[in-house]
Design a protein around this nucleic acid. Structure first.
Lengths: 272, 272
DNA sequence: TGCTCACATATCATCGATTATTCGTCAATC
DNA sequence: GATTGACGAATAATCGATGATATGTGAGCA
């Protein structure tokens, strides 16, 4: 039970700064902070209850990622270390370590002696993300359909159900955030059955990058006139029915349409 | 004047520790250090004379990557920070930052409060690497053949020529190292024409991971009875001739055969 | 007016010391 | 005799301070 004491002390130390206000922007431009209440994120699959995120650096990775994907940290903006240090109430070492890890996600870019900055967005970047998702996510799905277990089927249906039950109300931003989280989990669960860690990791990165575009440009009109829920449902049904060709075709269309949609919105944002 | 003094001091500081002995093993096990004389590496393409690697952390990334891919740092072994700090003559901050960046390469794994370790090797990991290389490297090649410029064609032929001119003499380890560098560059150049940064980055990661297996298990008998040089030549010729289907088929076979070869050697190492 | 160079300032990079956590060991207990 | 809990050594994580680099500014000159 001495251990309990020690642990509790740590938890307090770590928990204390969290409830404070959501991070204000670090970059020089933009100061209107969207008061998003930092959802108690149902983080990436594979995270056991007590295993991860005990250190400053690891928590920072999540906080920074969320801040970037949500658009609170403007694309392309410089990350001033001193201000970020204050904002997140940490020291330089864990901050730099967290940023270094985020390079892997493609959300942060770095240059020697010039520091870190939020990865920029561009039409070509979006096009590549879409194209690669079509290829690798479909590849993963095909493999998942081939070797996925019954448990995997169950996971897929559960993820689908949870996502579709969320009522997306623009007046309640937290419902949008929640849907984003479930949507991400749905796509990851769909392919998780393939049991190829490197591939899943890469798909997760692409999904993150894609989500940043959607959350920035399609915040309230996610599907346009599409019935996204139906698309998801069909893909899931075909997948658990082990109809590989049709499931993959539908997933590919789904990704492609989303990409086209985003492309249009982004072009509208950049051009005028 | 003052500035000149400052700069000179810095350069000396950075240059000084480099020529010292090659890094001895950091991990607890294994103490017989292969006295590989740390080739003055013809580093990754795209490195201008003065652009990158000015900081301790960035230099460390390269040194550590080389140490891991070459096998000097044993797969799966724990990386003791204090010993690594001494060995590489740096402080903890840049060391941790460098290790954090190497997570992206899949060469290092991390766990909160348990530190960093060299990524383990396994048959399933090798199988996935091979499978993914077949898919994504071929995808990249097809795109490169579709849109690659004449400059790209030239780059491919040059890379092929340089690689094939190296005489691989097991008695002269530096020739093996040199060939590895050129070989890596050949494969990357072959697909560089596709102009998809994310895809190229992923291919580079896979190539690195693959090279670790080859350099560990196929150090002196790279091709078995295969004529690897001829395989490379044919792929290059087909690529610049814009024969996409044949080039991709050959590349896929090439990757697959290499994988099978490695699988056999690795199985022989793990089993008995 | 436009350019170059020195200086001041802001920022990034690194270090050494301090704090927190884990892991091995051993004694106490059931 | 096995399990549990407490200690101490080893190691990881964090911090505050210092050193190095880049960037902005203005004087001097063509």
């Amino acid at each position: 039970m001495t251990e309990a004491t020690t642990r509790r002390a740590t938890r307090d130390r770590l928990a204390a700064p969290a409830p404070t206000a959501p991070e204000a922007p670090i970059h020089e431009t933009s100061m209107a902070e969207t008061p998003v209440p930092m959802t108690p994120i149902p983080m990436a699959p594979g995270a056991l209850v007590g295993d991860g995120k005990n250190t400053m650096a690891s928590q920072l990775v999540d906080r920074l990622r969320e801040a970037i994907v949500s658009g609170r940290l403007e694309a392309g903006s410089k990350i001033n270390l001193e201000r970020a240090r204050e904002r997140f109430s940490v020291s330089l070492s864990p901050l730099r370590e967290a940023l270094a890890r985020l390079i892997a996600d493609g959300l942060v870019v770095f240059e020697d002696n010039r520091g870190y900055r939020v990865a920029p967005v561009s039409l070509s970047n979006l096009a590549e993300i879409t194209r690669l998702r079509e290829e690798v996510e479909v590849l993963a799905l095909r493999q998942a359909i081939a070797i996925g277990t019954v448990d995997w089927e169950g996971d897929v249906m559960r993820a689908l159900h949870r996502m579709n039950r969320i009522e997306r109300d623009p007046a309640q931003p937290e419902t949008l955030e929640q849907w984003e989280a479930y949507h991400r989990e749905f796509h990851l669960t769909l392919i998780a059955g393939c049991r190829m860690p490197l591939l899943l990791n890469f798909c997760g990165v692409l999904l993150n990058l894609n989500d940043r575009y959607r959350r920035t440009f399609l915040r309230r009109t996610p599907g346009g006139d599409r019935n996204v829920a139906q698309e998801h449902g069909e893909i899931a049904q075909l997948a658990v029915a082990r109809d590989a060709d049709d499931a993959c075709a539908r997933l590919r269309e789904h990704i492609h349409r989303t990409g086209t949609n985003l492309q249009r919105h982004l072009a509208g944002t950049l051009a005028p």
